[in-house]
């Protein structure tokens, strides 16, 4: 597969966007809104000009501010799927797709299952159909790179799930370096093999979903990927687990060997809830919490307990007879207590 290399700096209103990225395969750029994600796509596509930088697909240079190279968008082999798709409202589905390239139009219409809609206008399509037309149109010009800007944000919940799995299946098949921008971490990791977390114009971490969860680079990445965050002070002990004293005074043990002030990341599915029992000592590595709210999501229950969110199977929650207001113990395996040094 070709390799897209991107490196640039661009001052935005509230911060400086700086990025170095080598792209092969499907990568998601994820971050809160206003982090500069869409601007990254604009720079690659040639719709925004950075202060300095370089964009190249293999040895095809699209932008090099040092060498005064800056190809216009129509001369960069980019397939860009816009947020809300930006289909041409005055053209039929076929005309939209053929606008990018006549040659492959019919093949793409058939491939994405929209041949029957060829004569329809964009305003007659559902959200999922628009997404397919936009993808087909972007591919019709035979791009070397595929860029998708928030491909799921304008879809309703039901359509979103099906489009998400559709993209997860299609994008690796297409076989292009692909960059997806999304503000939703779950969308990112269900579509892309690797995800980069972009905050305030900086790429905090780029890795597989597993790496982001097991070794979050900082507290923001940890909380963005869904972790609970606590604060405390850690002491390493030779040949033993590190001991952390939470700001609330309770001690915990962790397999991470870190010293000093730390953020403590604990994922909701690593939290084990149990009832307090006066006759037996409390379980090791636990804190005392009060349940404040419970929400059912599919076959699982999300429990807000003190400073933590816990997630457990519906049956487990039922077996424990959890109710808001109950005082319970939340315990964690030492390997689930992830320490991030705070500077």
């Amino acid at each position: 597969m070709a390799l897209l290399s991107v490196g640039f700096a661009l001052p935005l209103r509230h911060f400086r966007l700086e990025l170095e990225l080598e792209l092969d395969g499907v990568v998601a750029l994820v971050g809160p809104s206003g982090a500069g994600k869409t601007t990254v796509l604009s720079v690659i596509a040639g719709l925004a000009r950075p202060e300095s930088g370089r964009v190249a697909l293999d040895d095809e240079v699209w932008l090099d501010t040092d060498r005064r190279i800056d190809l216009p968008p129509d001369r960069r082999r980019v397939g860009l799927v816009f947020q809300e798709y930006a289909l041409f409202p005055h053209m039929s589905v076929r005309q939209n797709v053929a606008y990018g390239g006549q040659r492959r139009a019919d093949e793409l219409l058939a491939r994405f299952g929209i041949a029957a809609l060829a004569d329809a206008r964009p305003d007659q399509l559902s959200g999922g159909e628009r997404q397919r037309v936009a993808l087909a149109r972007a591919l019709a010009r035979d791009p070397g790179v595929l860029l998708l800007d928030e491909p799921l944000s304008s879809l309703d919940g039901h359509t979103k799930a099906s489009v998400r799995s559709e993209l997860a299946r299609l994008l690796p098949e297409i076989g292009l370096p692909t960059l997806i921008v999304t503000h939703d971490y779950e969308d990112a990791v269900s579509i892309a093999a690797r995800a980069g977390v972009l905050v305030d114009g900086r790429l905090r971490q780029l890795g597989s979903p597993d790496e982001l969860v097991t070794r979050p680079a900082d507290a923001f990445v940890a909380s963005f990927t869904g972790a609970n965050l606590l604060r405390g002070r850690a002491h390493t002990r030779a040949g033993a687990l590190a001991e952390v004293v939470l700001d609330s005074g309770e001690p915990l043990q962790s397999t991470d060997q870190v010293q000093g002030d730390v953020d403590i990341a604990i994922y909701p599915w690593d939290v084990i809830l149990s009832h307090e029992d006066a006759s037996t000592p409390p379980p090791a590595n636990s804190i005392r919490v009060e349940i404040t709210a419970m929400t059912r999501v599919g076959g699982r229950v999300r429990v807000a307990a003190g400073p933590l969110n816990a997630e457990l199977a519906t049956e487990a929650a039922a077996a424990l007879a959890l109710v808001p207001g109950a005082i319970v113990r939340a315990s964690f395996a030492p390997a689930s207590v992830r320490l991030i040094r705070r500077d």
Binding site: A86, F88, R137
Partner: peptide, 15 residues
Amino acid sequence: VDPRLVAASRTLGAG
């Protein structure tokens, strides 16, 4: 005219 449509046209290879 939605400027995104203009941008879309450019990225689709149209001058």
